[in-house]
Design a binder for these strands. Structure first.
Length: 283
DNA sequence: CGTGGCCCCTGTGGGC
DNA sequence: TGCCCACAGGGGCCAC
């Protein structure tokens, strides 16, 4: 569900929590939590002590890279990082009422010093929560990601896809190439740039690379302004849907008329993901 | 090595 | 109404 614009909207929704202390943490499903502060042959096995998921810590920053969101926490002189990955169906909400709405598939609940709660919910469980010992470990993990798509510029994008023989859409979906673009915004960015999603990445040429970088930034910024795309599940931290889906030109519009030229939108599969584009506007 | 294919999981919508 | 299949915003791991 969430790509960069949705995760950025969630990040902004959590920012007012900076300076607040976490007083309790309820891990309801251990297998969505990984603890990277302990030596373990299989970290997927879950946290040994749920208190270590930030209880007693003060939230000092909320940072995002691509689709990943990290809560930086301080506990006396110690540091802790809670990394949130939303997968396809993850939601993070902030609730003030004692009752947690729609408790099904709620896996982790943090209680704050003002009784508010951060609720992590994820029906499909493709997402997860990872505890890291410090920011240095986070930086090391994030060094595996490509540059953040929200500020991508042509020179960086060009070097990221240089020499690649794969379809440009597949490259855009690869978080090691570019961090933050998913299936929706890949199709939308390629449409805006007038590029066929099957085009060979390494053969785009400087003009198209520039157009693509500019389009990715423009599409993502517009989507952030619209507070993300709500197709079905996505909600912000206040449980409010976004409106960026109203901006979609080609995503999920196979067979419909292209909004620019009227030619029917075509669809195929690239990198196991459904792909929509206008054969008339995109070459 | 880069890359495509398969799988993880739950829910939903369409065809019959 | 119900059953079955295809498919959904992501990404880790494997074999080639």
């Amino acid at each position: 569900m969430p790509e960069l614009p949705e995760v950025e909207t969630v990040r902004r929704g959590l920012e007012p929590l900076i300076g607040h202390r976490i007083v309790a943490c309820d891990v309801r499903r251990r297998d969505v939590v990984r603890d990277r502060t302990i030596e373990s042959p299989n970290p997927r096995r879950g946290v040994i002590n749920p208190d270590s998921l930030g209880t007693g810590s003060v939230i000092s920053a909320l940072v995002r890279r691509g689709k990943q969101l990290a809560m930086i926490m301080k506990y006396h002189t110690h540091e802790r990082v809670v990394l949130l990955q939303l997968g396809m169906s993850g939601q993070v909400s902030l609730v003030s009422t004692p009752r947690i709405p729609d408790a099904k598939h709620v896996h982790v609940v943090w209680t704050l010093d003002d009784t508010r709660r951060i609720v992590f919910r994820d029906p499909r469980r493709f997402g997860g929560v990872t505890l890291l010992p410090d920011q240095q470990t986070l930086d090391r993990a994030w060094s595996q990601l490509g540059p953040d798509a929200l500020s991508i510029r042509a020179p960086l994008l060009g070097s990221a896809i240089e020499g690649s023989q794969r379809a440009i859409k597949a490259a855009l979906l690869d978080q090691g190439v570019l961090a933050g673009v998913g299936n929706i915004y890949a199709d939308e960015s390629l449409f805006r740039a007038g590029i066929d999603p099957r085009a060979i990445s390494g053969s785009l040429g400087p003009d198209r690379v520039r157009a693509l970088a500019d389009s990715i930034r423009a599409v993502l910024r517009a989507a952030v302004r619209a507070r993300g795309s709500t197709l079905r599940d996505y909600r912000d931290t206040n449980n409010t849907p976004g409106s960026a889906q109203l901006l979609h030109q080609v995503y999920n519009r196979a067979g419909q008329a292209c909004p620019r030229c009227g030619h029917p939108i075509e669809s195929t599969r690239i990198a196991q993901r459904s792909t929509c584009w206008c054969p008339c506007c995109q070459h």
